Amino acid sequence: MVRSVALAAATLSMGLIAGLFYAYSCSVMIGLGRTDDRTFVSAMQSINVSILNGWFFASFMGALALTALAGALHLGGGGRSALPWIVAALVLYGATFIITVVFNVPLNDQLAAAGAPDRITDLAAVREQFEATWVRWNLVRAVTSTAAFGCLIWALLRGGVS
């Protein structure tokens, strides 16, 4: 039962994170891309501050921890048919995690360091240094986290729930 709960919780948290990155890719960044430089910089700075909350951290870290836990719990017993899919999900989400830490977070920090939008002398340059690279890496993590979510769903279907 604990094994099943861990896998279900991992799948849920992975789905939440995959959905978040997907939503940024197919709506948030497209919408912000159509705004002027001041609006873009101001909105992204605000989003980057507001996303640092318990709900986000619970799902972002939970996807990693719960997938690892589910994998460990499936090492023995009858859940071995789900194990390769859990491991694949862990590897894919590991890539998502690394992309976030190595690319997206430093870009967020760089955008914050630029200062308040009404004090930035060249908003276009600040946006230029941020937008395309951030969007590109977010798309990659949307794909990797969605693939990880799919792997966990398949793990559930392969016998991960008993």
Results as ranks from 00 to 15, higher is better:
56 F>G: 04
52 L>I: 14
89 A>W: 05
74 H>P: 01
88 A>T: 03
68 A>Q: 00
71 G>Q: 02
32 L>T: 00
80 R>D: 05
45 Q>C: 02
60 F>R: 09
61 M>D: 14
89 A>L: 03
46 S>M: 13
78 G>Q: 02
66 L>N: 06
51 I>W: 06
47 I>V: 11
80 R>H: 03
54 G>S: 05
55 W>G: 15
32 L>V: 10
72 A>N: 11
35 T>W: 04
43 A>L: 02
82 A>K: 01
39 T>R: 07
86 I>Q: 09
49 V>N: 11
51 I>S: 06
33 G>P: 00
92 L>V: 07
76 G>I: 08
60 F>T: 09
37 D>F: 06
79 G>S: 14
58 A>L: 14
65 A>W: 08
85 W>H: 08
89 A>E: 07
32 L>E: 07
53 N>Y: 03
53 N>E: 07
79 G>T: 10
78 G>F: 04
56 F>S: 08
51 I>V: 15
62 G>C: 07
30 I>Y: 06
40 F>R: 00
29 M>C: 00
61 M>I: 15
67 T>Y: 01
33 G>F: 04
76 G>E: 13
28 V>M: 03
36 D>I: 05
87 V>R: 01
65 A>K: 10
48 N>K: 12
67 T>P: 01
51 I>A: 09
46 S>I: 11
38 R>D: 07
51 I>K: 11
80 R>Q: 15
85 W>M: 12
46 S>C: 10
90 L>Q: 04
33 G>Q: 00
70 A>H: 05
91 V>T: 02
27 S>I: 02
36 D>W: 12
57 F>W: 13
72 A>E: 04
89 A>T: 08
41 V>D: 03
56 F>H: 08
80 R>W: 10
68 A>P: 00
79 G>Q: 07
54 G>Q: 04
66 L>M: 10
82 A>C: 06
28 V>A: 03
46 S>K: 13
86 I>N: 07
61 M>C: 15
61 M>S: 15
62 G>P: 10
77 G>M: 05
51 I>Q: 10
28 V>F: 10
39 T>K: 06
44 M>S: 03
72 A>P: 01
42 S>W: 05
72 A>M: 05
41 V>S: 05
38 R>G: 08
83 L>F: 09
74 H>A: 12
39 T>V: 15
45 Q>V: 04
77 G>W: 01
29 M>Q: 03
49 V>Q: 14
78 G>D: 10
60 F>L: 12
69 L>C: 12
92 L>A: 06
87 V>Q: 03
73 L>N: 03
57 F>L: 13
79 G>A: 11
58 A>F: 15
86 I>W: 03
44 M>T: 02
51 I>L: 10
54 G>Y: 07
47 I>S: 08
42 S>M: 11
36 D>H: 10
52 L>Y: 11
92 L>M: 09
67 T>L: 00
31 G>A: 10
71 G>M: 00
